[in-house]
Structures are given as C-alpha cells and as structure tokens.
Design a protein around this nucleic acid. Structure first.
Lengths: 219, 219
DNA sequence: ATTTACTTTTTGACTACTCAAAGTTGTCAT
DNA sequence: ATGACAACTTTGAGTAGTCAAAAAGTAAAT
C-alpha cells in the first residue's frame, strides 16, 4: 500500500504534466509540495526504483503507467470527497479542498464507490474539475480558454476554477463567478492588466492573472 | 498535531483502562497494537515525555488528562464515522470497523461536526458502543452484564457487541443478535461451555467465550 | 570561451516508528 | 531464601521522510 506521501508526490506530478510525454521539473515539485529540492531528488529516485515514475536527471520526471493510474485514483478520491463535502455535508466551497487533501488518503475503494453512488456518479467536482471515471481514467480535457485568453464579447460559460487556494476562492466568491455561471468579457486592457466582465448579476472587475485561473467555454 | 500512530496508542490505552486509576500493561498494548513489546516500551516513553501518559515501569501505563481527552476525541470520531458508514452509506455492519480505523485519523473537527449533525447527534454507534459527547467526554458506562454472566431466565436487551473482529461479527449476524434485540438465557452449562438463548426469532446456541462479548441489560 | 547565475544532486544528519535479540526484574513455587 | 519463568526494558539496527549546506551541472551573457 503506497503511503500518503507517495500518493501526494504522484498526484503533484500528474496535475503538473500537460500530457503523457512532458516531464515535470523537480523544482516545480519542490515548490508544489513545500519541501526542499534535495528531498525531491531523494524521493523521486525512490519512486523511480518502485516503478512509479521515470527520473531523467536534470530534465525532470514522468509517470509510468502504474504511477499514473495510482495518481488518477487519488485525484478521483479527492474530487468525489470534495463533492460529498459540499453537496451532502453542505460545507463551504472554499474550505473543502484542504479537508479532501487529508481524506483522499484514508478512503477505501469500497467507501468511495458508495459515496460515488450516493452523489449519482458526478462528472465534476464543485470547482468544475472533471472527476476521472472508475474505469475510464482520463484527466482534464478542458477548453484551454480562460477569461484572460478568450474572445471578448462572446457569450461564455465558466467551466472550472483552476486555482483552489483559499484567498482566490474567497475572491471569486465575491464576484459571483462559479462553474456554470454565464459571463461575457466586456473589455480587456493588456497594459493595465484589467479585465472587465459582465455577468447576469452585474459586473466584475479582475486582473489578468486572476482571469487566467478561470476556465471558460463559448456557448 | 499528533500522528495517527500516537492516536492509536492512546486509544488502545483508553479502551483498555477500566477506570481513571487503573494501569494498562505494556504487554496488553503490544498485543492490541500488533507490535513487539520493545516497541511499546519505546513509544510509551516518548508519549510520557510528551505528557500524554504516565509510565510506571514494569507496572503499566495510565493516561494523563490531556492524553485521555485526545483518545476520547479519536473514539468519538471512530464511532461517528461508523454510524455514518452504516446509516448513510448503507455499508455492512461488519466491515465498517476497519474503514473507521483509517478515517478516524483523517477527519477534521469541522467535518465531524457536520457528520454528527447529519446523523442527528447519535448516542451510540451500530455496535451499541456509546459515542462520547463533544463537550461531555465520558466513556463506556455499560451494564457490565453479558450473556455469560447475567441472570438466566430473565428478559434481556442486547446493549453492545464488545468484540468487533470480522469473524465474530459474522457469527453473531447469523444468530440475529444485535443491539436492541430482546433475548433470554434458557440454559447455561458451565461444564460444556454452552449457552442457549431464546430470541423472538428463534433459538441461538453459543459458547461461553462468545457470550462474554455480548453485553446485555435486564428489561 | 569564460564567467555568472541558476537548478539539481549529493552528503551527512535528524525524527518517528519499527524489529530482533539480549539483558533485567518481579513473582511465585518450592 | 532460591530458582525458574514470564513480563518488561535495553540495545543495535533498519526504513521512510525530511533538512541544510556543499558540490556539480547547464545555459545564457559577455
């Protein structure tokens, strides 16, 4: 049974690899996991020895099929737990990420299956992130468009909130933006970094960096 | 934050101490936790250094107020989680103990409070074990009577199933005994170790050792 | 072609938990 | 009292995960 540390390392690699081919730098992992670079090198070598990932020294790291499957299972648990916390326990949108971070390592497949059924086999979690299926493991199709990159003046739908840090969640909660919201970009000023959007409930103003964390799709 | 190992040690001490005064032997803990006696001695010294229990060498171990509070919180989590698994997720009575064993270390106070509310602040778990209250921490009043010790021919009610090992749970599931069941001891033969009981649904025959794991109360 | 700056890896050390095996100690029967 | 025995503790060692600091490699700028 993999330890929760191992699960966290694999998950960090997974969510940072754009596709199966790309490698993730050890520096990025150190940043993401909050440990020193030396620790990453050590762990990565051990994970590679266990066949969970390939380590290309001074290049980066790539998951093996086995490592990927394991990481995907953890992401699935995380997102189902988040959905449960919000929909059944009525917890606040912005506090569930941290809770799920702990629970994802303690939940058995059996309990997970029950939760999934209770929730009606949801396709995405409260942040709009897709929940990989039990048998069809796949991750993050995603439109690739964000409020920072989309065509202005077109009618959009918020697909996913890409950043789950509490302050950002707090911020967008005030704007009223959430998965499913209808929105249109009114104007975007690359110089000042301001994005002005219109939503059914009013107006929202946000900066370019924030806008990049909100994935949208034309409707 | 205590590690789950620490939580498990404290819980093991708690559920094995009859009262606040009694000490628990390190041998009993080694048996309970499935580690060697030397490991217990080492850990117990470390726990004592942290102020969570008192170690009286070659005598045993007793929880401090702080250790007791921590252990009680873990037991509370365990029993609420078990109740949730059975009542909400409709899981099988006999498989929830193991699941709760893992979850009890991963659940925050916030999530616990939500679960408790969702379940209507239950007083006891599916095995009949009392759930210590959030503020009024107390453990195991218990009648002290079991099918092995009670007065024969009196009308009884099953209060708690004291042994949560899967085989035993499987066994009593076949007999139909569960918390709340009405039962009367027909005959008890100390020589052969046979206890014969009458329940509304029929008869059950069990041995003395098994009978000692079923707590009852006269009605 | 060096220097400089940056990233990554190595090294030595530490904490938490564990075991096997050897060493102590308390108790109980003689 | 005196063994004998069982329970308990000590000792030495190993795994997982971590850090700080030194060493090594890479790449871009001069």
């Amino acid at each position: 049974m993999p330890t929760s540390t191992v699960e966290n390392y694999l998950k960090a690699v997974l969510v940072r690899s754009a596709d199966t081919e790309s490698v993730v730098s050890t520096g990025a992992l150190a940043e993401a996991l909050g440990v020193t670079p030396g620790t990453i090198t050590t762990m990565v070598k051990s994970l590679a020895a266990q066949g969970l990932l390939e380590h290309h020294p001074r290049e980066g790291v790539r998951l093996t099929r086995e490592g990927r499957a394991l990481a995907m299972a953890v992401v699935r648990k995380h997102r189902i737990v988040e959905t449960f916390l919000v929909q059944v326990l009525k917890m606040d949108w912005k506090e569930v990420h941290g809770e799920a971070e702990a629970l994802e390592h303690a939940i058995s497949e059996r309990v997970l299956a029950r939760l999934d059924a209770l929730l009606g086999h949801p396709a995405s979690d409260p942040h709009g992130d897709p929940i990989p299926g039990a048998k069809s493991p796949q991750l993050d199709p995603g439109s690739g468009q964000t409020l920072a990159t989309c065509e202005p003046q077109t009618q959009l739908r918020v697909e996913r909130i890409l950043d789950q840090s509490a302050p950002f969640l707090e911020f967008i909660q005030r704007t009223g933006l959430k998965p499913g919201s209808r929105v249109r970009v009114r104007e975007r000023d690359r110089a000042s970094g301001v994005v002005r959007c219109e939503l059914r409930t009013g107006e929202a103003t946000l900066g370019l960096p924030e806008a990049a964390k909100i994935e949208v799709r034309a409707t």
